[in-house]
Amino acid sequence: MVDMLLMILAGVGVALFGFVLQTSIAGVNRKIVGRIQKRYGPKWYQEFLDIFKLLSKRSVTHGWIFDFGVIMALGGIIGTAMFMPITSSLMAFPGYDNFFIFVYLIAVGMLGMAMSASGSGNPLASIGVMRALTTMLAYEVPFMIVVLTIIKLTGTSSLSELGILQQAGGDFNWFVIALPLGGIVAVISLMGMLGKKPFVTYIAPAEIASGPMVEYGGKQLGMLFIMHEITVFIEVSLFVHLFLGGAENILFFIIKYFAVYTALNIMSSVYGRLKIDQVVLFFYKWPLILAVTQAFIAIYLGWVI
C-alpha cells in the first residue's frame, strides 16, 4: 500500500516534471520562432506567466459539463503522463509503460476536452472538435503502423525496454535510422499530433475563432493550457523513447526532447496551412504507403539497417 502511494507520488512528480519541462521549452521556442521572424521574442518563462495569469482570472461557465469536461481532460492527461518513463530506468510504474496505454489514455483527455467544448453551446467549438478528430484520424494510423513494426521486431511494447534495446545496439541503432522510412513517417505524424503547421487545422483564430477554445477564459483555459503542455510532453517523449533510443540519463532526455521539439517548431514556422480534407488525403497517401512499405520490408524481408 505504502509503495503504491509512493509510486503514485512519483507519477505525479513525472507529470509535474513534464509540465515544467515542456512549458519552459515552449517558452524558449517562442523566442526561437521570434528570432526566425526577426523579432526579439517574449521572456523564456512567458508560458508560465500566461498560464498562471489565466488561473488567476474569473471566468464564465456554461454549465456543469463545461467544467466536468475540463477536469476530465486535465485528469486524463495527468494520468497518462504519470506512466511516462523519463529515462529508460526512471519511471513511476516500472513495467507498465505500455505503448497502448499512452495512445488510448491520452484519448480520455481529448474526449473530455471535446465534450466540454461542445458543451459550451458554441457551434465554432463543435467545428473545431470535428476538425481535431478528423486530423487525428489522419495522423494516427500511419504512426501506429510504424509502431507496429517496431513492436513486432522487438517483441515488446514497453517504452523503457524499447529504449534499452536501442541503446544496447549502440547510438545508431535508433529506430529513426534503423527504419528510415518509418522514421520519416513518425516525424510527419508527430507534427500532426502536435498540431504544428501545415497540419494545424483545428486552431484557426480568424476562421473559427480558435475552434475548441472559443468559449474558454480564465481557469478553464488555464487548465486546458496545462493539459496541452503535458500532452505535448507525452507525444514528444513517445517519439524520443520509440525512435531516438530513449535516454540513458535525464540530461540526454532533456537534450533529445529539446532537439526534437525545436526542430519541429522551426520546420513548422515555414509552412502554411492545409485544409482538413487535404490533411486526410495527405496522410492516407504518402505516409501510409511509406509506413506499410516499411512494415513489409522489415517484417517479411528482415531488412533493418
Binding site: 521574442g41 495569469k53 480558435s210 472559443v214 474558454y216 477564459g217
Partner: peptide, 22 residues
C-alpha cells in the same frame, strides 16, 4: 505586433475571442 516593435516581448499577443482576452 510584428518585428518592428514586437509587442510579444511585453508578453502581449492577439487573441481570438473576448473570453480569452484581458
Amino acid at each position: 505586433m510584428t518585428s518592428a516593435y514586437d509587442m510579444e516581448r511585453l508578453g502581449m499577443g492577439p487573441m481570438a475571442t473576448p473570453r480569452q482576452a484581458d
